[in-house]
Amino acid sequence: MTTFHLGGDKRASLADAAGLVRDGAMVALGGGLCARLPMALVRELLRQDRRGLHVVGSAHSIDVDLLVAAGAVAVCEESYVGFEQDLGLAPAYRRAAASGAITVRESCCATVLAQLRAAEAGVPFMPVRGIKGTDIEGLHPEYARATCPFTGEVLVVVPPLRPDVALVHAPLGDAAGNLHLDQPYVLDERFAHASAQVVATVDRLAPTAEVAAAGVTVPGHVVAAVAEVPYGAHPSSCYPGYAYDRAHLAEYLALAAADEIEKYLDLYVHVGEEAYRDEVDPVRLASWSESEADWRELFR
């Protein structure tokens, strides 16, 4: 049963925050595609050698691929994992799917949404409009078909999805765990309410009045822990602070595609988060706001 997290100071070290994720946990990943991904938490889970995770989300990229590459994942239940036309397929995910190292239980954005809503509302199922007759349906023995008692339509129905933990990165938050996000929120609000707990990182902790003035997207009463980690979404974007780090992503993909993930882990994960941050070029990633030409340059 999802309960609120009341009272007190939710501030934690990154290590303690990530420590709330257990081996084998169902983990909802916030953000989407290559924006506002909870990358510092992902890196910390790898430092702590987490195993057997069941990761769920909508459309994702380096967060899932890196967790899979390092052997932390048993089941993937996203609607998409990849780097779009820019950098292509997700190499570790592709390899692990082919070898059977992970179970791919691919889902659909609207199905995940329906399942989270069932969890939030405390109802045992929700119907969806499609999926019927697709091969996605066959990947999910937990789905069923049911006849609508009012219209007689036969629809696919899906059970609640209640992640053990939602990992969310926000540009701004306070000590009580109130988080401010900028749109698109993707599924972060739904994950926050459907999951047993939210574990968050923020680029900056601020007084409650400042977070309230910016707007609270995820309230502190669903958050178990919040760690201040500047560049906590890097190499994904977290505007206005930083754009997508295309050079870093390309370096990751080259190593992952060559099956040299150990090299990436040595360079960027095992070194610790402070050393990782030293490698980020803050001026370049903030240059998007200087001019359109500067912004375009970040994507070349």
Partner: peptide
């Protein structure tokens, strides 16, 4: 393994 269907299945 291709990327996946996003919301297309519904």
């Amino acid at each position: 393994k291709l990327g996946g269907g996003g919301g297309g299945g519904n």
